[in-house]
């Protein structure tokens, strides 16, 4: 049975919000870590690896958002 167009639209909006808000949250988390990592690297180059790792940790939140969006679009949108 085809999905109600309104529900399909809302699912798309939900998927968009999941990715968008998760990205925003990750960005907010990363800004301080990124600034601190650059600061630490400026004083000691050896901090590059650790700094990079710390900076990308909040990226996992963006990935959660992407997974939720994919679930919404491919599992429920039938």
């Amino acid at each position: 049975m085809a999905m109600d167009p309104f529900a399909a639209g809302m699912l798309a909006v939900g998927a968009g919000l999941a990715v968008g808000l998760a990205g925003l949250g990750a960005g907010l988390g990363e800004q301080a870590i990124g600034a601190a990592a650059v600061g630490a690297m400026a004083e000691d180059e050896k901090f590059f690896g650790k700094g990079l790792l710390m900076t990308v940790i909040p990226e996992s939140i963006a990935i959660f958002g992407l997974v939720v969006a994919l679930i919404l679009l491919f599992l429920f949108n039938k």
């Binding site: 800004q31 301080a32 600034a35 601190a36 650059v38 600061g39 630490a40 004083e43």
Partner: peptide, 15 residues
């Protein structure tokens, strides 16, 4: 974003 303005300088100072 309050903590961000100190993140860079405090990391450098720690170094």
């Amino acid at each position: 974003t309050g903590g961000t303005r100190y993140a860079y300088i405090t990391a450098r100072v720690r170094g």
